[in-house]
Simulated assay, not measured.
Amino acid sequence: MAITITIEINRDFTVPASFDKVFDLLSDVPASGSHFPKVDQLVEIGDNTYRWEMEKVGVDKHALKSVYACQYVSDKSAGSIVWTPVKGEGNGLVSGNWKIKPVDDGTHIVFTTEAKMTLPLPSLLKLAISPVVKHEFNALIDAYMKNLKAEFAS
């Protein structure tokens, strides 16, 4: 028994840092990932592909751990960083991209991601658990964006 929950997130903001500084940090997955909260391990598995192992969320036997892997492709001239899911790695498929462009007061950043998490829970719990999982994922992304904004403001 398992349920799959799909989460889509979009963020759009401007930071007072140069395009080069923003692109260089965001395209360096370990450096960027160091700003993401609740990462247990970020494991390089080759070919600019990384497995994200998140800290467990929940209590005792009801704690869940999200694990997924993505391959990253950066294109500085296009101002894009794209990640695609690696099937067979963990319990999630995560895809998305950064779109980065210079503007008068710094760099404008658009973040888009979609996660499909498969959790070992009975289907009866999907209605109750889905909003909790979505809230937790949004909170992690919000903390990540806050950490990146602070980094780019320094």
Rank of each mutant, 00 (worst) to 15 (best):
E44P: 01
I45P: 01
G46W: 10
G46H: 08
G46A: 09
D47G: 08
D47Y: 11
D47A: 14
N48Q: 11
N48I: 04
N48S: 12
T49F: 11
T49L: 09
Y50G: 00
Y50R: 02
R51D: 03
R51G: 02
W52A: 00
W52T: 01
W52C: 00
W52M: 00
E53R: 14
E53P: 03
M54D: 09
M54I: 09
K56W: 06
K56V: 06
K56L: 07
V57D: 01
G58P: 05
G58M: 04
V59L: 11
V59H: 07
V59P: 02
D60P: 00
D60E: 05
K61D: 02
K61C: 00
H62I: 09
A63S: 13
L64V: 05
K65H: 06
K65P: 02
S66W: 06
S66P: 02
V67M: 05
V67S: 05
V67C: 03
V67D: 03
Y68W: 11
Y68D: 03
Y68F: 14
C70D: 13
C70A: 13
Y72F: 14
V73S: 13
S74G: 11
S74Q: 12
S74W: 10
D75E: 15
D75M: 13
D75C: 12
D75N: 15
D75Q: 15
S77I: 07
S77F: 10
A78C: 00
A78S: 10
A78P: 00
G79I: 13
S80D: 08
S80N: 12
S80R: 14
I81T: 13
I81M: 12
I81C: 12
V82L: 10
V82T: 14
V82C: 04
V82D: 11
V82A: 07
W83P: 05
T84N: 14
P85M: 03
P85I: 05
P85S: 14
V86N: 05
V86Y: 06
K87I: 00
G88W: 08
G88D: 11
G88E: 09
E89N: 10
E89P: 06
E89H: 12
E89A: 15
G90D: 02
G90N: 02
N91T: 01
G92F: 03
G92K: 04
G92H: 01
L93Y: 04
L93K: 09
L93M: 08
L93G: 07
L93C: 02
L93W: 01
V94F: 01
V94D: 06
S95A: 15
S95P: 10
S95Q: 15
S95T: 14
G96I: 12
G96E: 07
G96P: 12
N97K: 07
N97V: 00
W98N: 04
K99C: 03
I100S: 04
K101I: 08
K101S: 12
K101M: 09
K101H: 11
P102S: 13
P102V: 05
P102H: 06
P102D: 05
P102F: 05
P102R: 08
P102W: 04
V103L: 06
V103K: 08
